[in-house]
Amino acid sequence: MRTLLEFEKPIAELEAKLEDMKKLAQDNNVDVSSAVRNLSKSIEQLRNETFDNLTRWQRVQLSRHPDRPYTLDYIELMCDEFHELHGDRGVRDDPAIIGGLANIGGLSVMVIGQQKGRKTKQRQHRNFGMANPEGYRKALRLMKMAEKFDIPVVTLIDTPGAFPGLEAEERGQGEAIARNIKEMMVLKVPVICVVIGEGASGGALGLGIGDRVLMLENSWYSVISPENCSTILWRSWDFKEQAAEALKLTAIDMKSFGLVDGIIPEPKGGAHLNFEEMAATLKKTILQEIKILSKMKADQRVDARIDKFCQMGVVNS
């Protein structure tokens, strides 16, 4: 059963009507082809209208759609081979971040990403995609391995934030993220980061330093979630729509500010409507970018990466 967001419902209702009509026609052997054509056309029209005019909050909702593809879905659809590698060699294996060696279209790649769960039990197991320090340290271990074997790194970002727990603090959540940011800056291999769903703050940035940082069309990336922003600035959760507008957190916003390098289009209606198409687009983009980046010398790439991030910010002086 599909989960429907509020603004998906009118479209789904028309789709259901269309199905009914087709079934009725088949059962009674009547020709309704012109009515079917008309209805299909209005569905198409409504979909275009809805999805060409999404508010920022609606995109946030799409980024969290329970049916949206997660890191493991992309790995399964993009990779010819994937060998998951576990553990940070210090504390434990963090299921909220997965990583491993992959073969994508004949190319060896280290793929790392936050993983959310789909059912209640899985969600808990994955801690809703909120990593602990050992998750970031596992990611760094795998990136260093990729560097050793001269294999490009691809990170898939999808997190409501790094986990704000007691043990996370004891084990140095801040230090783990900070170290990843700095080490990713100087990683000698090509690094491509893609925000596939939620890109919340430091928890996202801990996997987010790359030669190319890309966002899926309906993902978001910002310093705080709209809900938390609303709670702090308006002192109530009720202003999340306004907070989303104020934060300007969509792919289009972030690209226009020059804070990310590109937007990857999603199938009409969102990535959840067509996993295969979305994964194919992502795969194609990743392979293209790796090809371009591989032509640069390692030191050049690192310099360009550092310089890119150093230029971010707007001040008056």
Binding site: I181, M185, L205, V223, I224, K248, I306, F309, G313, V314
Partner: peptide, 17 residues
Amino acid sequence: RMMEAGYSLMQMAKTSA
């Protein structure tokens, strides 16, 4: 700082760089 949203986030990256 929330009021600079994405820009604030990237200051973490800039300083670390």
